[in-house]
Write a protein that binds this DNA or RNA. Sequence first.
DNA 1: GAGTGGTCTAGACCACCGG
DNA 2: CGGTGGTCTAGACCACTCG
Lengths: 276, 276
Amino acid sequence: MADRIPKYVEIAQDLRAQIEDGTLPPAAQLPTEKELVEHWGVSANTIKKAVNELRQQGLVETVPQKGSFVAEPTAPFVITLNHTDLGEENPPGRGFGGGEGRAFTAEAERQNHAAHSSKPEVKVEDAEEPQMRALGIAPVAPGQPRPQVVRRSQQRFVDGKPNSLQHSYFKLELAIQAQALLKSADIEEGTVAYLQSCGHVQTGYEDVFDARQPTEEELRFFGLSRGSLAVIEHRRTAYDQHGEPFRLTVTIYKPGTNRIRFIAGEVPVEVWERGS
Amino acid sequence: MADRIPKYVEIAQDLRAQIEDGTLPPAAQLPTEKELVEHWGVSANTIKKAVNELRQQGLVETVPQKGSFVAEPTAPFVITLNHTDLGEENPPGRGFGGGEGRAFTAEAERQNHAAHSSKPEVKVEDAEEPQMRALGIAPVAPGQPRPQVVRRSQQRFVDGKPNSLQHSYFKLELAIQAQALLKSADIEEGTVAYLQSCGHVQTGYEDVFDARQPTEEELRFFGLSRGSLAVIEHRRTAYDQHGEPFRLTVTIYKPGTNRIRFIAGEVPVEVWERGS
DNA sequence: GAGTGGTCTAGACCACCGG
DNA sequence: CGGTGGTCTAGACCACTCG
């Protein structure tokens, strides 16, 4: 019976209970590791493992030389990646390809959140395997020069806090045709509309999701420390009227504060409106 | 410069490199912790942290009293939760509400995987908050008796290996009308079709995704040890012709071996066919 | 300079697995 | 039985933050 609960799990459960019943309110600092060591009469490593559990559960965020703090109550920001956006009629407030570009800020406003994005950073770089696959670029032998792609990257914030990272990849030839892609500035009319005016109508897309450990860059941006939660990765490959892939957009979300949502068919309007 | 890489990260990177270049092929056992301790001249805890990194990255699976093994090359099984399934014409092979029920096995076959599901386990239980919210059941004060719901749970396997867990929730009144929901047996014609024959036509749904740490039950089912990767949770709330929510299906996927996919509009047929 | 968490060591005991 | 990983201890030093 009971399966021998390790001490660090027990400690984590106790702290969790304190967080859930409000003894440790949101944003409060946890007892320091030293205090916990004394309180429980265990060694420092055991406490670290306990706190680590909570970090992985998203209940606690640790700032390395300051302390561990109860995570803000996840008033989740919902990204609606809606379906009904491919030339069919668009219900009011449901922009094209939700979650991308300017649709992101519109979505946030509907949910009474303030959102902003950094200026796009544009880089021309050697294509990596997954990007090549998605954009339909033939693989090259190792050692051969790799084809180049344009990457447009943005950092996105909600209520001033880091929310997601977005990288869009385009073939270099396309960017030469559609030069606004090379400028480090928002595309006023939206990327999808702009590319349409350049002859690439987005007629379909494929969305793929996965969860994975954050990279170092993502850890820094989200202000997380190692060993905390996984991020959600969303890859959207967009196809034009010739059935050719012409854009790959990769968005990385910090979970807990984000929900990814799709809506299909008829649902009550309250579902659209509600933010969680 | 270089930001002081901890030793355990360095060791993890070395092992990772060995996995990626094939020195440690899939399913091979890693050097034991003792061997790694000797090889690197570090203490056991440092090795454990290194291996833990790899576990969280999904590169390694540890079986407690046997050893750590290189994870099988993620030949990812792609669950296509397609859009074009709401009464519009269905392209061949794209069943209704992909990823659910029998559509799951059909999807697997298209990708040349063998899939099977356990017999549904049916339970009548007190509704929890999130289930009530989704099914549109009014909240009750704490202490009051909670309304009851029917839960149908299935374990799903691909190529004999645990793939996902699925729980569908229904209001008890609905299950009384539609009694097949109470039987611990597959519903031959599919749940959606069956409920349609009971007067609930699925006219829309909302999908929400999140990533989180696995529960104890999920750890056991997936054969993971604590501190390994996050799982992907997919919640689908289905609405009927009156705009009432009548079903909540929660599916938990082991990441790495699963990709969740949506397709909208026109994409080349190869995209439908390919398994990654 | 005091306080924080991050890394690391060199031991220990345990539970479980296999032959 | 020997070998494995899981837990745990009681120290240590470091880097960073803050007053």
